[in-house]
């Protein structure tokens, strides 16, 4: 555990909590892509199956349970409790265009051809692109609520901090995992355009709206 890893985890946790609270307090999931949230629930489910097979630490187990629990709670709020506020017409990204290639890639490029390992690899690949339906939705509507942009910023920052964590681990532990690193780079790059808008607009007190 190093400082980048810890702040990355906390940033991830902050993102998840911000989104849950935003939906709960406003009693609305307007502007939130339910599809991205379903993808994140799939990501956590397929990655954390090792909860059933191995114990690493109390920190590890509790964070995994919190992430996966919050992911399903978010999906529940969007598709059941506040379904009436869900903006399905604008959430039109075709997720099969992500899941099918990512599934194929996980079968082809993995560390070992074992069920849990393939599912772990699938979750790493899927996480890297799971935000696309949300970004697509924002580009379609041309705007995002400020609280939604805070959520996206924390979520993007988390994987960027993990990149620094991997540099640290390579330098001090001689350890690296190419699958995680390449997917983490892709994931972070997808947020770059958003990071730019966040810094130039939201942090200056303006609402995030895209030019028509």
């Amino acid at each position: 555990m190093n400082v980048f890893r810890l702040t990355g985890d906390l940033s991830h946790l902050a993102a998840i909590i911000i989104l849950l609270l935003k939906i709960w307090k406003s009693r609305s999931c307007a502007g939130i892509s339910g599809k991205s949230q379903i993808l994140f629930a799939i990501v956590f489910t397929t990655r954390y199956l090792d909860l059933l097979t191995s114990f690493i630490s109390l920190y590890n187990t509790s964070m995994k349970l919190i992430y996966v629990g919050c992911a399903y709670a978010t999906v529940y709020l969007i598709y059941v409790k506040f379904r009436a506020t869900y903006d399905g017409n604008h959430d039109s990204f075709r997720v099969e265009f992500l899941i099918v290639p990512v599934g194929g890639l996980a079968v082809l490029i993995n560390h070992s051809f074992a069920p849990l390992e393939i599912l772990w690899t699938f979750s790493i690949y899927l996480e890297s692109v799971a935000i696309l339906p949300q970004l697509f939705m924002i580009s379609k509507t041309g705007e995002a609520e400020t609280i939604t942009t805070h959520y996206l910023f924390c979520l993007g920052l988390y994987r960027a901090l993990y990149l620094f964590n991997w540099v640290w681990r390579f330098y001090f532990e001689g350890f690296f995992d190419m699958i995680a690193i390449v997917a983490g780079l892709v994931q972070t790059v997808l947020y770059c355009d958003f990071f730019y808008l966040y810094v130039t607009k939201v942090l200056k007190g303006k609402k995030l709206s895209l030019p028509a």
């Binding site: 890893r5 191995s54 690493i56 560390h111 070992s112 690899t121």
Partner: peptide, 10 residues
């Protein structure tokens, strides 16, 4: 992954 040291990561 399964036999990588990455398992402690989230």
């Amino acid at each position: 992954g399964t036999d990588s040291k990455l398992k402690d990561e989230l």
